[in-house]
Design a binder for these strands. Structure first.
Lengths: 314, 314
DNA sequence: TAAAAATACTCCATAGGTATTTTAT
DNA sequence: ATAAAATACCTATGGAGTATTTTTA
């Protein structure tokens, strides 16, 4: 005996039945013509459906009559009418499942866990959010602020699917993760408003030698702090770091309180902190990057679409 | 192009998919063995399912991947997991529809409109009700009291499916209706408790000549009133009818009020009306029948089962 | 007697089997 | 090296066609 058993109900049985039964006078001949098929086959399909429904596990035979066969054209029985309702609802469930599955495959339905650093909230987040919601209204986005370090961990442990962060060099070799630059911003010099250097619009980096530096936390924001240290090194000095802070708002507060100066991505200006001023760096190529990171092994269509949207914004 | 299109989703696709996908490690080989079929075919069935899901009305091709094929054994994708849930629920909907349809065909699920006269409520109704509910708990019974005349009309207009009544002779020839006797009861003589005839236990019918008769309404209860008139005629007198009433309680009330005497089916005794006594008729064969009536053309299984139950009670 | 459904048959597409190759661990 | 899946090829069942008969109105 076969597992594939010709006695089993199939959707085609239901499709034919629904076509016939919902045709006002149930004429097999008419419906067969409409479907462009032979009357004989539609007839026997319906008969087969009745046979299949009549089969009982092992009890005595049961006759299920969907149509009254003493009428021309055939007439739906009460049982047939009930079955029609159920058949219709099953077929539409199939259609929904089909549609749903396709939409998921295209990344149009689903869920996405995204992590970001405070820099990102300050800059590119609103653009990403708006574009993505517009194109993928049925994808549920879950955002959470996380430090660079935690984002990388969370990616590997599948807690998040995408991260937006200042990528530290150490992560660049990671074979498991893919990344791309989303945004490249100039660094700006953040000074207390009464600071002596504040009189000029542009300041060469070298002039900052000897200043007290307030640095993004090296543990929690390694990418950004590393870039700042590297830049200073390139122009020939080692900055004197007196404070470290993870949150941009904290750094600005410390600068306003004249605890030192800071180098921050230009988006810091969006915060409009009282008591601080922003000045350009004279040198070119004094920029920091915000990168997007994901698992290379992730085949989720939602992630793919998200990446596409972010790529197009950049 | 065929209406029967091999690109269409079929239940067998879902059955195979569910077997594989709900197997903990999705091993096609294992599942094929469990099902007693070749691995190659199960493999290509699953592939075909993916192909079917991938087809789009006319837009660009879309790849729906239910399994990650870079793994051995295969692994369900996220899309596959969602589809699994939907497939399972569709298959169980099919099972329910199947079961439901069979039960309806057997008359185990459905609805039945039954009409009865007050005689029936007094006598056989509780037995019928109990037996039927016991055997067919999922059939919804709708009872309504109707006069004989109205029952016959309601049957013909499909307002009711079965009637229980005193069948008038005129209906016996009706080709459209089927009927059978459910209960045959003796008639009893109903007397005011102080009536002179009440002293004996059995009374010959002839003795009632000259009494004032209270008769069941000839319009509304033609079967019963006719039988009573016929009986009197047979023993040689025409009863003097002073009142007619449709409800048995009314008749008993009139007797208690000494407006006359009555002949009623023995079930009248169940009413225990104060002020009346019941006496046997001396003659044999002074019985009235309660009949069950239905449409001959009615193929409803519920009606058939109801008739069976009633037949067994009799 | 006409219209509809059932039956008889023929044909071929495809589900299913066996054997082998390719892919992943 | 081994287990699993994919591929190649073969077979036969049942879905679909044509022609005809039976049933109902």
């Amino acid at each position: 005996m076969n597992y594939r058993d010709s006695d089993r109900l199939e959707l085609q049985d239901l499709r034919y039945f629904v076509e016939v039964a919902s045709h006002e006078n149930c004429s097999i001949t008419d419906v067969a013509e409409q479907l462009g098929m032979a009357q004989s086959n539609l007839s026997s399909s319906i008969r087969n459906l009745e046979k299949k429904l009549s089969l009982r596990n092992n009890k005595r035979k049961l006759e299920v009559k969907l149509f009254n066969r003493n009428k021309r054209p055939l007439q739906l029985t009460e049982v047939g009418q009930e079955f029609l309702q159920e058949a219709i609802s099953i077929l539409s469930a199939i259609d929904r499942a089909f549609e749903n599955t396709q939409q998921r495959s295209e990344g149009k339905i689903g869920q996405l866990n995204v992590a970001l650093t405070s820099s990102v909230s300050n800059s590119i987040l609103p653009d990403i959010l708006r574009k993505f919601r517009e194109q993928y209204p049925n994808v549920k986005l879950l955002w959470r602020e996380m430090t660079t370090h935690n984002q990388l961990q969370a990616l590997r442990s599948h807690q998040i699917d995408v991260g937006l962060l200042h990528l530290p060099k150490s992560a660049i070799d990671d074979k498991e993760l893919g990344f791309t630059t989303v945004l490249e911003e100039p660094l700006v010099i953040v000074l207390p408003e009464n600071h002596q250097l504040a009189i000029t619009k542009q300041i060469p980096l070298k002039e900052l030698q000897g200043e007290k530096f307030i640095l993004p936390d090296r543990q929690l924001v390694p990418g950004l702090s590393q870039e700042i240290l590297d830049l200073c090194k390139k122009v020939g000095f080692e900055p004197k770091v007196t404070q470290e802070a993870a949150l941009m708002l904290t750094i600005l507060g410390l600068v306003a309180g004249e605890m030192g100066i800071a180098l921050l991505p230009a988006n810091a200006k969006n915060l409009r902190r009282k008591g601080v001023v922003y000045r350009k760096i004279e040198e070119k190529a004094t920029t920091v990057k915000i990168d997007m990171v994901w698992r290379r092994s992730d085949e989720s269509a939602v992630v793919e679409q998200f990446r596409k949207v972010v790529r197009e914004i950049r």
